[in-house]
Amino acid sequence: MNLGRVSLFTGWISLQIVSPSLFTWADQPIFNEMPRWDKGYGVQIRHEWRTEEDLLLNRTKVGRGFGEDVEIVHVESVYTWDKSIRVTAKFPYVLNASRELPDGSGGKLFQHDSGPGDPILALPLKKYFNLDGRSGSWTMAPQIQVSMSGSDEYEVYENVWGQGISFGYETVTYRYILNVGTSAWFFGGDEPFTARVSLDIGVNFEAFNSNGHVKWESDYFWEDDESATLYMGPALYYRFCDEWHGRLSYRYDFYDKQGILDHGNGSQFIVGVAFVY
């Protein structure tokens, strides 16, 4: 998602990055689980911490100690007219973001960002199926990204309009859960086309008179500027009661290649809580 400009200084290369990498969160509220019923609605809040360890060009680290730290709150909501048609809205807000770059004279340049990100509106269309001992759904979700982020020293979100489409399949038994998905995003401006595939497998459990699941989530992103990232990690979901739900997830970049100079080799931790009715 980045454009890099390179200018030569005496003995140094100064690197300017126009926009950072940010993976569009593919799951839909509420936690990709609910509501499955007519006229259901819900709100979830996810608090995300992300750290990128290195500045990368392809798979090569550029310099040492040029990292990026991002803290974002996501407020996301859903309403289902009936179980096959729903609308979702995701509003990200950058609490604090900072990144380090070479300043061209052997030192570090620090840049900061805060404020609203680019919201995403989606219209997930679902076809549920019920078998004996197994149920699931097929999903198609047209989406738009609204250009709304501001203009700080740098922007975590691209501040561009985008159109996306995603397809998914999920199935669940009393013991196991499986999600498979793919999506494509076209952005305005110079932002590259982005494609994603994901595979989540998990186990359901019961504890403390309620239930939850543990998943291993894998996502592979590809951008047509030759960037590619594979990140994976565990997720824990728990139902506190019918209305209140929680989720924790951690992801680590197992493979990261930046076609244009950008931060990479990162990890992400998210805490989420949701209300659904």
Partner: peptide, 11 residues
């Protein structure tokens, strides 16, 4: 049939 996910089934 298919009633096997407690969270999905709260509806």
């Amino acid at each position: 049939a298919g009633f096997d996910c407690p969270s999905c089934a709260i509806g």
